[in-house]
Amino acid sequence: MKDRKLIIFLNIVLCQVFLNLYIAVSYLNHTLDFIFNVLPAVIILIVVFSAGLCLFMVKELLRLARKEKDAEIALARLEESNFLISTLKAKQHDFANHLQVLYGLVERGEKRALKKYMEYISNDLKTVDRITGLKCVEVAALLCKKMALSENVVIEPVIKTDLKHLSLPPDKVISILGNLIDNAVFEAQRHEEINNVRIEISEDKEFYIFEIWNPGHIPPQLFDKIFEPGFSTKGEKGSGMGLPIVKRIIEKFGGKLELISRKGSGTTFRVYLPKKETSLPKAN
């Protein structure tokens, strides 16, 4: 991409060289004698030609800049996919350990413990299956990353859809979910009794619904304030920009954000993100 920009600049230079040579040769050949009669028209012609060429080149440059941005997004996707693959490989290794435990329990005849352990692994398998079944690889990678890196907090994903027709660009979805999950984990870490975060992803006819629950509580008088830039309940640790950014992105792409918080019942951020229009059922 960078080299195509250089070629465009080269073309602009060549254009100027050509025009200068043309004017010099025309002057020497005395064709400018004729041109003097229509000099303003010729100058306008040359300026228009030159400007047109430069405008075209700038347009090409902008197109290249857009392509460069797309390439960066694609690279980010690739990195997320690589992370997902290594997480799943680690899970595979994990299951080898589980098999050893199962073998041990069978050997000892611990039927109840064996059943309980198998239920646990089965649920884990279902969760992994659902996460890897997500068509939006970035969301899958984000969930795996958050689950792996959250200390002392258990993240429970409940996934009821595959996000196949999500209309938002992946980087925007990650920005929304990443901020909300980080906030939820922070609240769960602060909570004395409950240390888990539940993330539910489902869908209705028009929207994909992301519900992020944490055991914390937001007083009703702060419901609007938390979306103001600079306001944070995290004290010095918070920049106060996470939720305003989340709200701005959601509104920009035609989504909705709901906040439900009751003392003793935890806090839920419910995000509605629109599906692609082609995926919606036709009227006829």
């Binding site: 195509r4 070629i7 465009i8 080269l10 073309n11 060549l14 254009c15 060289v17 050509f18 060429l53």
Partner: peptide, 8 residues
């Protein structure tokens, strides 16, 4: 891009 450059 190359047409313009080559001709010029």
């Amino acid at each position: 891009i190359f047409s313009v450059g080559a001709v010029l």
